[in-house]
């Protein structure tokens, strides 16, 4: 362990702002990217399902008309 206390760890020998800025931005960006990527699959599937119901309705309407 390089640091005596938690406060010293946060301070990073005076460079706390820069170190935590870079780590914060990095993990923030990555977290956003990962959540968006994981959610994308569900979004795509829901969209396909919607399209399917739309097609279904179209088919039924055509069936009643003729």
């Amino acid at each position: 362990m390089q640091f005596e206390s938690f406060a010293e760890f946060i301070n990073m020998g005076g460079y706390g702002f820069y170190v935590w800025l870079s780590y914060g931005v990095t993990f923030g960006c990555l977290a956003t990217l990962i959540t968006l990527s994981v959610r994308k699959k569900r979004k795509v599937l829901i969209e396909i399902a919607k399209k399917m119901t739309r097609e279904q309705r179209l088919k039924e309407n055509r069936g009643t008309k003729s």
Binding site: F3, G13, G14, S22, Y23
Partner: peptide, 19 residues
């Protein structure tokens, strides 16, 4: 962040290197 020794020139700011 916690265990690597401090760089004698750059101090703790060198820990940015790990990302």
């Amino acid at each position: 962040l916690l265990f690597a020794p401090m760089d004698y020139q750059q101090g703790d700011s060198f820990r940015i290197i790990y990302i």
